[in-house]
């Protein structure tokens, strides 16, 4: 072997060795992914580390969108909205900017409880007065005022003003837990699997939800015997972008590569079946044509885009079905 041949062999081998070593080091120190969307809501700080699902909606963006306008044309707002505004002085369109909901297991109890965090402009005094008139009691936890009420068959429901412009609504224990969360407490950022799922959410998504389907069932809400019959899915991440149309992207994580492959086959099968059923309905075909399935490793992805025209078609179908 000549000298220059040996040099080439050494250089190639060197690139391979250095690459493999660097990759291995990166793999061992991969830690928490940094890929959480840049516009991640600040309310994530109130989500505990053991949360099994988190959902978020940019209410202001949804309400201001053409999508919402199209729905309103077919289904006008009901009287509930007016009542809400008259009694609480709260307009969803005007006063609420964002909503973040999460589910987390209750300490010492089976199952999970949810908590909604609403950001916007609230008349705290008026809300508290209305609650007190309804029989609610007020307490304090971690400097935040908590208004709670016992509801038959449901338990203690509570509302707390965590910060100016941030209201937590949910189970009393969950509200207390959120109100008492100190700055040093481990939050969702310490939950690597959840952060990895959050990393799948793109910047600019109008609404999204991520969740882990743990062994104890779907966020602890579904009995184990039922969840055992569900497809071998361990986590999901869904996100939507609302503008004139609606773009939705769903990622499901299977238990292993084989399970994910099976899921991909099932999804593709359904898509193919739906496409066959949609022959002769061009509007529906346009929607199905926009469906894209894929994924790698344990992930299964499904995404679609509903253009404004297709949305009109679907909404008109819904309204005609309601009319009949």
């Amino acid at each position: 072997m000549s000298r220059r041949t040996r040099y080439v062999a050494l250089a190639s081998g060197g690139v391979l060795t250095v690459g493999l070593c660097s990759g291995l080091v990166a793999y061992l120190n991969r830690g928490i992914p940094r890929g959480v969307a840049a516009d991640a809501p600040a309310e994530l700080a109130f989500v505990p580390s053991d949360a099994s699902a988190v959902a978020y909606a940019d209410v202001r963006a949804v309400m201001a969108s053409e999508f919402r306008e199209r729905i309103r044309r077919i289904a006008p707002d009901g009287v509930g909205r007016e009542q809400l505004e008259r009694r609480l002085g709260l307009s969803i369109e005007r006063d609420i900017d964002r909503v973040l909901v999460f589910w987390a297991p209750q300490a010492g109890e089976d199952g999970a409880s949810g908590l909604a965090l609403l950001s916007g402009r609230f008349d705290a005094a008026r809300l508290e007065t209305v609650a007190r008139d309804g029989g609610a009691v007020v307490s304090e936890e971690g400097g935040a005022r908590i208004v709670s009420i016992e509801v038959e068959d449901v338990g203690s429901l509570a509302m707390a003003f965590l910060q100016p412009g941030l209201v937590a609504v949910g189970d009393l224990a969950a509200v207390r837990s959120a109100a008492g969360r100190g700055a040093g407490e481990a939050g969702i950022h310490a939950n690597e699997p959840m952060m990895r799922l959050l990393g799948r959410i793109d910047t600019g998504s109008t609404a999204w939800a991520v969740g882990r389907l743990t062994d104890s069932g779907l966020f602890g809400l579904v009995p184990e015997r039922v969840s055992a019959r569900l497809p071998p899915v361990t986590a999901f991440a869904v996100q939507g972008r609302v503008n004139g149309g609606l773009g939705v992207s769903l990622v499901i994580e299977g238990r292993d590569d084989q399970a994910a492959r099976n899921l991909r086959d099932v999804v593709r099968g359904f898509v193919a079946l739906a496409q066959m059923q949609s022959i002769g309905i061009p509007e529906l075909q346009a929607i199905l044509d926009s469906l894209e399935t894929g994924g790698a490793g344990t992930a299964v992805t499904l995404s679609f885009h509903l253009p404004a025209d297709a949305l009109d078609f679907l909404l008109s179908m819904t309204s005609s079905a309601d009319a009949s």
């Binding site: 793109d202 910047t203 600019g204 972008r241 773009g247 939705v248 992207s249 346009a286 044509d289 926009s290 469906l291 894209e292 995404s303 679609f304 885009h305 253009p307």
Partner: peptide, 12 residues
């Protein structure tokens, strides 16, 4: 960038 649309399909 990461997000976009190909042939009417949203892709990441």
């Amino acid at each position: 960038d990461a997000g976009g649309v190909i042939d009417g399909r949203p892709v990441t």
